[in-house]
Design a protein around this nucleic acid. Sequence first.
DNA 1: GTTGACCCTGACACCTACGTCAGACTTTAC
DNA 2: GTAAAGTCTGACGTAGGTGTCAGGGTCAAC
Lengths: 114, 114
Amino acid sequence: MRIGELSERTGASVRSLRYYEQQGLLTSERRTNGYRDYPPAAVATVDAIRSLLRVGLTTALLKDVLPCTVGERSEAACPQVLGRIAALRDDVQSRARRLAETGTSLTAYLRDNR
Amino acid sequence: MRIGELSERTGASVRSLRYYEQQGLLTSERRTNGYRDYPPAAVATVDAIRSLLRVGLTTALLKDVLPCTVGERSEAACPQVLGRIAALRDDVQSRARRLAETGTSLTAYLRDNR
DNA sequence: GTTGACCCTGACACCTACGTCAGACTTTAC
DNA sequence: GTAAAGTCTGACGTAGGTGTCAGGGTCAAC
């Protein structure tokens, strides 16, 4: 399929799809006219990319993560990836906790000073 | 105290301190020579700023949050601030959850495909 | 009176995932 | 045959917090 259709089917903008390709997350064939041509499986790949980006992974990290989830497993690299994901998760979790604390203390503050 | 001392005592770079002031988070007097002059309380203010920034708040939001925590309470604005903090907290929490899921599924994947 | 440490403002650089515009070609529809 | 829609590459813009450099005052010590 062409890039417009892939865009429609995934919700990713055409610009984003080209960006993913530029970052090495997505590949495409080229037709004789230069247009990109994607296989049906690209939809799943793009879905995976977007959901992982939403979580907070970067394209650089995604480049290592994707082979562990969608493509062929490169077993040597994946444990390291797991470590980085765990670190990121811990960081995000601690931020969430401190945010909750901030909210709580603000609530208490408001209650006591009204 | 001068900016260099405040920087040392807070761990914030001189550049950051000037930035905080530019964003309206921090105020200073000026000596006759143009140097900034901070009261001792500025240390606590900067500590608050940095810890809230680390959590993920932006300077724009901080501008609203700080009066609720350090300065005089502006009771009208704070409930709205609380709402924004809660939304941010929820967002960060859901990201943490999904990150944990990603880590879990990758772990399972590695275990099953070894 | 000079060195060196400290301070000032202004401005460009960085990163990340895009949005958006320009200029040009291809294909489709009428 | 022409207009419209789709695609191409290239490049600049954005937000946010901070690094860093440039060019220039200030002050304390020797």
